[in-house]
Nucleic acid binder design. Sequence first.
DNA 1: TTAACAATTAACAAATTGTTAATCAAGGGG
DNA 2: CCCCTTGATTAACAATTTGTTAATTGTTAA
Lengths: 260, 260
Amino acid sequence: MVSREYNSKKFITPDGYASDIAVFTITSESNGQYKPPIKFLKIMLIKRSNQDHEGNPNIEAGKWALPGGFVRSNETAFQTAERKLYEETGVGGLRIKHFGVYDSPGRDDRGWILSNAHYVIANEEFLKNRKTTKDASDIQLLTIEDALEINLAFDHRKIIDDAIWFIKKDMALTTLAKHFLPKEFVLSELQGVLLTVLDDPSIKTDAAFFRKAPTLPFLEAVSENGKLKKSNRYSKTPAQLYRFNDFQPITSVYSKKLKG
Amino acid sequence: MVSREYNSKKFITPDGYASDIAVFTITSESNGQYKPPIKFLKIMLIKRSNQDHEGNPNIEAGKWALPGGFVRSNETAFQTAERKLYEETGVGGLRIKHFGVYDSPGRDDRGWILSNAHYVIANEEFLKNRKTTKDASDIQLLTIEDALEINLAFDHRKIIDDAIWFIKKDMALTTLAKHFLPKEFVLSELQGVLLTVLDDPSIKTDAAFFRKAPTLPFLEAVSENGKLKKSNRYSKTPAQLYRFNDFQPITSVYSKKLKG
DNA sequence: TTAACAATTAACAAATTGTTAATCAAGGGG
DNA sequence: CCCCTTGATTAACAATTTGTTAATTGTTAA
């Protein structure tokens, strides 16, 4: 397969090509009946076991790490991400997005190992339904604050830092919020998700947000048999349910007012 | 270096890790004196020689390809990009940005070879000053249209397609335009650059663009000894010179009107 | 002197925003 | 069953921005 021309240069080649996945979710904690819950941004991490499958001591054992694994020669890192996500956490069918490559020499004591990093957003309900393929202590949802405090394997702290930066950006610029929410949701839920990840004053003020939201081209009010569908899940007053449609908004710094 | 534990799995490892760079520039073609020039978005490609440095037949010989090369085990792909860009095209000091990884099995006949893809924006003047490290026929600036029509090596067509998508996005969302322009420029130059890459009606209408531009937080009028500095390079009427400052604008789809 | 023309400015209606103050529609206590 | 409370919306209005079309200005070339 590898040609003579290429081999003759005696290049040193990588010792491994890994695919890692930062799985984010927002968990809700009830704040009393008929009140919007308190939300926390969390990341799914796994604890590296002391031994590998063959019983040999595992590198970075005992530390927390992003789920992931080595890419096989007949698949892409993207496919590896799908596969490992399902194998290790039992979740499937989520939108996976590449956001960076980590290839600093020395990042992995085993040798020259590259990591192709992805992120995934899962809504709470989705994660609840996951199969428990490993015992619970292995997989944990940690708040971002906690995750960045504990002892993380390899350069996963840097990877998580970057991943957070990317989801913030995508949350502001795309309809990423949809992946944190159920199909149909109430405006306060959307607002809660946005505020958990972003820090945009124009989202904070209720009146402005509630007036603008219904006009956003990527949101639509849900109706059922001709009349608007409402929900009481977080308020006594029935609140209108919304869903995301397929509109892909784009913005530009050269039009409309900016904040920075 | 590679531990027993790891080796014992007999993983197949990649046969090579490459770094490729899509270098974009906008060339100006005079449209008559005192007129804004016509601009074209171009990409720098190199023609793969028939033999490699050692005289062996080269893979994908004769085809056009992105400049780039194999990452060494003691550097990152980013550093490779800097090094190869300088070696092959004589340009240095440009802002290089990662945008994707190409790792489909079979993308390179030599084996399992990954490409870490970057893009770079160079302004015309900068490229003019480049050292000619290779004979001219080897390196060419092609318009995007031409580049996508010719026979490109490996999966470089896909890489270029993606790179274009990324620069469009970054052009709209960041002050990327600054890299296409000289330090000080006239509004019609900025407008020309934006229209060459983007297709935003609000930029097209002169009156709107000229009225809004001076208020953009990331632009500032240039003055010299207390008075505003003007230029006649593209008009009889002296036009105000502007420069980008360090303001990093951010936008959000949840505020301000959208287009999509 | 004047026609031409890019670069601004002006002017004004239409659309969006920020803000503060009403309304509305239950659930729960009395 | 009548209020009180609390989110969820609406209303009301002033302040900003934008889209458009119509002037103005400064300079070169005929």
